[in-house]
């Protein structure tokens, strides 16, 4: 006998993700899933955003790593509430891991929760966590071919951040090539070019995120 199912294999993950999203909504928190390679500057971007939002918009962070609490320690130094998830070898976060972390997380009212995913341009793209926005960080030293080489990641995000543009004079990186690839793979994606280290270009990302938060809060009010 054949049972017709026709359900997404990740249906269970998606259900937990929806519950996570509902919890965030209840607390009026806007969730960001922060993706990118190891070393792209995800934690540096979190630190830079924390500085920018300080005293204005509350922020909490969930840090996903295979091992160590180093990233969480960096964020904690800035006085930001942070919860570390150690995946114990798993190459991505899933909605269940985030649900557990959410139990321990201070969810900032009218603020952001940034979930820093495991550094990886492949696996995390399949798993929804309950976020409202998916942001991938691509750094200049990684090379300008990454959008085309990892389309399953870059094709499934809302925002692409090109980071470390302060290194542009030293490494070949053709921004136009990246823009061209984005246009083909993810035409509706927002692109920001910045350096989390020098602050160049940070302001426009911050304004965009604030506008997203405002729209979200207006929508749930």
């Amino acid at each position: 006998m054949e049972l017709i199912i026709a359900k997404k294999v990740l249906a269970a993950n998606d259900e937990i993700a929806a519950a996570n999203q509902a919890l965030l909504k209840k607390h009026r928190t806007f969730g960001i899933n922060l993706l990118g390679s190891p070393g792209a500057g995800k934690t540096s971007l979190v630190e830079a955003l924390a500085q920018k939002l300080k005293g204005e918009i509350p922020l909490s962070v969930i840090e996903g790593d295979l091992a160590t609490t180093r990233d969480a320690e960096r964020v904690e130094k800035l006085g930001i509430p942070v919860v570390q998830i150690n995946t114990g070898g798993a190459c991505h976060l899933d909605a269940g891991m985030v649900a557990q972390a959410l139990e321990k997380t201070t969810l900032p009212r009218d603020g952001f929760l940034i979930i820093e995913n495991v550094g990886n341009l492949v696996c995390p793209s399949s798993y929804r966590l309950g976020e409202h926005l998916r942001v991938v960080v691509l750094s200049v030293p990684e090379g300008d071919d990454k959008v085309a080489k990892y389309p399953t990641m870059f094709g499934r995000v809302d925002v692409i951040v090109i980071n470390k543009i302060d290194l542009s004079p030293y490494v070949p990186f053709d921004r136009e090539r990246v823009k061209g690839d984005i246009k083909k793979i993810a035409p509706d994606t927002k692109l920001f070019t910045l350096s989390a280290k020098t602050d160049e270009g940070m302001e426009s990302l911050v304004s965009f995120l604030k506008a997203q938060l405002k729209e979200y809060l207006a929508h749930i009010a």
């Binding site: 006998m1 054949e2 049972l3 017709i4 199912i5 026709a6 359900k7 997404k8 294999v9 990740l10 399949s126």
Partner: peptide
């Protein structure tokens, strides 16, 4: 990426 059917 779907589970389409199960034969039992």
């Amino acid at each position: 990426f779907r589970l389409e059917s199960i034969t039992i």
